[in-house]
Design a protein around this nucleic acid. Structure first.
Lengths: 218, 218
DNA sequence: TTCCGTCTCCTACTCAGGTAGGAGGCGGCG
DNA sequence: CGCCGCCTCCTACCTGAGTAGGAGACGGAA
């Protein structure tokens, strides 16, 4: 019994982030994506997701109105609002529109996943505890765990991704991993293709915004 | 009871600046200088300073490793890290290495002096969290009030920086700000110079790791 | 065994990004 | 007034990044 998810956000990087995050979860499936409100309403009607991850700020139709229309057509749907801001003035309006909960785009991944499951279960998720990032994660195990939370990418691609996210150049990455920079380029091309990103700059933004390699080995 | 200081920085201008600044303080004395990490370790061993003002980026041996070695040899020494605006990873690593605090090279003089005295007294100074908050605070200064450019970047450069941090290309930034992409390039060159960064990728990492523009208007 | 995915490396090419240097306009300040 | 900092824009140039396409090696799965 998997949770069917629709991701509606106008930033492709955000969508890519969620795709990547959710791909690692066997019980969650992204059945469609939308880059604006109208598209979200349309796809919700056609794919009948259990949960809609909905950005508020979107072209064509904002997330609030989209939420109203989706719920008007399908009151079994659950909408989880994505916000950047802690103190969003839209919060109350979104609740009135029928949203089931809120998540911050830069909440830790586990929290996002938990939020999706809770909402899919029919419960409301009111004001997720805005846990401040704990910075002091000094002691950290290198990388013994085989299953990385991020799927799609191969192990080697993840290695490269981590180094990209730290601002390293291709040559530096090559030195770090003991491979040539042409090989690094190959991996990067694959990473960008898989995540639908334009260049390494977007990859860095994605990595940091999703808190991907957060408490990594420095 | 004067505080004995060792200044370790590869830029002679910086050393000269500290020399001049500290010369005016009766209770502080610069007992030695070093232009690289090895020299710093050596001089620390020979002069036994109370406080080492340590740059991170130095030839031969970087400030982190130099810090470790100095503290291994003399655990009464206190190391104050000098940073222009460095990446967080350095901050954590420096703390792990045993540094007692951080100062920005362009902090106001009184602050630098205060930092030296505090650290000499055995107390730690400015947790990274506080540093972050401080930095984030004045970069978030409201638009109309042109504040003293303590942090070097002009308002326009800050505008560009924010957009870089979101992964935009030069052309996109130009469109967003209604300026040509050559102008964008000009600003970026200045930003990179001022913050001592290699390219926009490092700028993105810096922005995110310091939480610079976190509650930004997307 | 064959096939496939992964990892490695290569050439050749295009293009965005960054540097260097100059220049004009504008507003504030001594 | 003149100077200076900021913002704007330009040309010319060089390099790193990314694409395209191919290839060999290895190990696991069918």
């Amino acid at each position: 019994m998997t949770v069917r998810v629709l991701v509606a956000d106008d930033q492709s990087m955000v969508r890519a982030g969620f795709r990547m995050l959710l791909a690692g979860e066997p019980d969650i499936e992204v059945v469609a994506e939308a880059s604006n409100g109208l598209e979200a309403v349309d796809k919700a009607g056609r794919f009948h997701p259990n949960v809609v991850l909905m950005d508020i700020r979107m072209p064509e139709l904002d997330g609030l109105e989209a939420t109203r229309r989706i719920l008007a057509a399908d009151n079994a749907a659950r909408v989880l609002i994505l916000t950047t801001f802690d103190l969003d003035e839209y919060v109350y309006e979104a609740l009135r529109a029928g949203a089931s909960g809120f998540v911050l785009k830069d909440d830790p991944p586990e929290q996002l996943l938990a939020a999706i499951r809770v909402v899919a279960g029919g419960e409301a998720l009111l004001s997720p505890a805005i846990t401040k990032r704990v910075i002091a994660q000094f002691t950290r195990t290198p990388r013994p765990a085989p299953p990385p939370a991020v799927e799609e990418l191969t192990q080697r691609e993840l290695d490269v991704f981590r180094l990209i996210a730290r601002g390293l150049s291709n040559a530096e990455i090559g030195r770090e991993l003991y491979i040539s920079d042409t090989t690094v380029k190959t991996h990067i091309t694959h990473i960008l293709q898989k995540l639908d990103l334009r260049d390494r700059v977007q990859a860095v933004v994605l990595a940091h915004e999703t808190g991907l390699f957060e408490a990594d080995g420095r």
